[in-house]
Write a protein that binds this DNA or RNA. Structure first.
Lengths: 188, 188
DNA sequence: GGATAAGTTGAGGTGACCCTCATGTTTGGC
DNA sequence: GCCAAACATGAGGGTCACCTCAACTTATCC
């Protein structure tokens, strides 16, 4: 039986929303190590209130980014349903780049692990498993090079977490096509 | 007439060397924003001595990284003299990835600009001009795709500043070959 | 070996951030 | 309207890094 969630008082709910909004902005610009006092300031709320609502930094991070992570998992599911497997593969990469290029906080959420926020890691796991299917389909159809691995996705996206992501993802995709593949170095 | 450089006293020279060595290690692991007090501690020298020798953080950064930057410029020159233009292009990328993957400080030096240390920016400029020639040769020979630009080099290297750089540079190179090129998105 | 310039030291002022808690305020049910 | 529980507040103690400077130490030159 999980802990019973009592509803927040009206003012508390309002402040919570202000905090999450402010955190989204600040994390988005300055990353997950941004100052919590800055977030409280921007929310127009005292630092004590922030700690009342979110006892740890990770709790606040989860409140901000669990939604976006779930959206990402949905993108993966949509990608798996594309008629053309390559198009699905490209679709998911594009959505991922798009999101991460616009939000430094989200980029860091995707590349770190959060033992204290199992819900986040679970969603990431789920999205990863779905994308694995996308990869397999694209390889089975002969469009994606056979030596592409799930872990290479992290590289692809982190490489393009910047404003010119469309151009640079295009380079990467040209390198990912089966027709372009030259043998990879043997080192693991 | 530039400021006459008086030679350092023997103990001062020794401390300077200790500081530069410690800074190389600390910047390499923790990046350019690392704590200066940590560097002084590791050098076994007081924080005051650090400030005596290097009045600003940038002065210390320059003392550590000007040499490596010049090395990088030499790599570019060597790359320009390869018989096979593509091999020269690959050579310079490999040297750059190798260096940056091993040194977080150097990675940041390459991606930031330093108005207060014109010598560093000048070396980077020089290396960039040389590498531009490497690019032109490789494009003229039909091996490198025609739409590759000098700025794409930064993307390529920053994307591979990690331990698995060989594998991921291989992907990138497959995407950089003329034979793999699909049209890039029109946006600039 | 003594004078002096060069160099070293670390305590301390400043400021940012973290987190807590005693005190004061607001909400919602009766 | 009143009250208890829920909530907000911000001063304050702790940590860490930055940078300065007055007092002390050492190298160098004669």
């Amino acid at each position: 039986m999980p802990t019973e969630e009592r509803p927040l008082r009206r003012d508390a709910q309002r402040n919570r929303d202000l905090l999450v909004t402010a955190a989204r902005e600040v994390f988005g610009c300055a990353g997950l190590d941004a100052s919590l006092e800055e977030i409280a300031r921007r929310a127009g709320v005292s630092i004590g209130t922030l700690y009342n609502r979110f006892p740890t930094r990770v709790a606040l991070i989860e409140a901000v980014f669990l939604g976006p992570l779930e959206l990402s998992a949905e993108h993966a599911e949509r990608a798996a349903e594309f008629e053309d497997p390559w198009d699905g593969f490209v679709y998911f990469l594009e959505r991922s780049c798009e999101t991460q290029a616009a939000d430094r906080g989200f980029t860091e959420v995707c590349s770190r692990s959060f033992p204290d926020a199992p819900a986040m890691d679970a969603v990431k796991e789920r999205a990863g498993e779905t994308f694995r299917k996308v990869i397999c389909r694209a390889q089975a159809s002969g469009q994606l090079r056979a030596d592409f691995r799930l872990e290479d996705f992290d590289f692809a996206v982190s490489a393009t977490a910047h404003p010119q992501w469309r151009r640079h993802l295009a380079f990467l995709l040209d390198g990912f096509r089966a027709e372009a593949a030259h043998p990879l170095p043997d080192a693991d």
